[in-house]
Amino acid sequence: MFTPDELTHLKQHVNHYPEPRAGAIYCLYAVQDKVGHINDKGIEIVTELTGLSKTQQEELISFYTLLRRRPIGRNVLRICDSISCHVMGSKAILDAAIKQTGVPIGEISKDGSVTVLPSICLGLCNKAPAALLNEMDEVENLNVHSINEYLNKLSEKPHDLNNKGSGSNIIATSGRENNS
C-alpha cells in the first residue's frame, strides 16, 4: 500500500512521540488519503506502526467524523444539522438529498458521484442551512430546490482521476514538509 519512503516517513512520525499510539491518527489519515477510506489492510499496517489493536483503531475512527471506515463517492457533501441549520430547515435538505441520490445517508449515490453525510456545526450559521463539499467548498443558503440542483451538478461533473477528492491529503502537502 505505501512506498518504502512513505513507510519510513510514517515510522519517523510515530517515533517522535513518547507514546507510539499518539501517531495513530496521522497514520490513519495517511491510509485514508491513499485508499479513500480506511480498509482492513490499512488497519493492519497501522497496528504494526503503532501497536494499536484493530478495536483500538476502530474506537478512534468511529469517534472522529473525518475518519471513515467505508468507501465514499467521488465527492462527500456534509450537510450541517446543528441548531442554526436545524431551525433553518436542514432536515428538509437532508430528506431532499436522500430522495435525489436514491440511497440512505452515508451511502454512495447510484452513479458514484457523491456521499451525503450529516455534520455537526460547520461554523456557517450566518449562511444556514449550509453544507461543506470535500472538506473545502462551502455551500450556502440551501433550500430543497438548490440542493437538488447542486447534486445534479455533481453527478454531471466528469470523473477526474487526478483529483483525489476529499481529505486534507496531509502526506502530500503539509505532513512531509513539516516532518521530514
Binding site: L52, S53, T55, Q56, E58, E59, S62, F63
Partner: peptide
C-alpha cells in the same frame, strides 16, 4: 477491560448519544 486488565479486543465506539461498547468483531 483495557486500562485495568490490559485487553485490547473490546472498546468504546463513536461519541455522544451514539456511544456504544463492543468488540470489533
Amino acid at each position: 477491560y483495557q486500562d485495568y486488565a490490559l485487553g485490547d479486543d473490546f472498546g468504546v465506539y463513536a461519541s455522544g448519544n451514539r456511544t456504544t461498547f463492543r468488540r470489533s468483531e
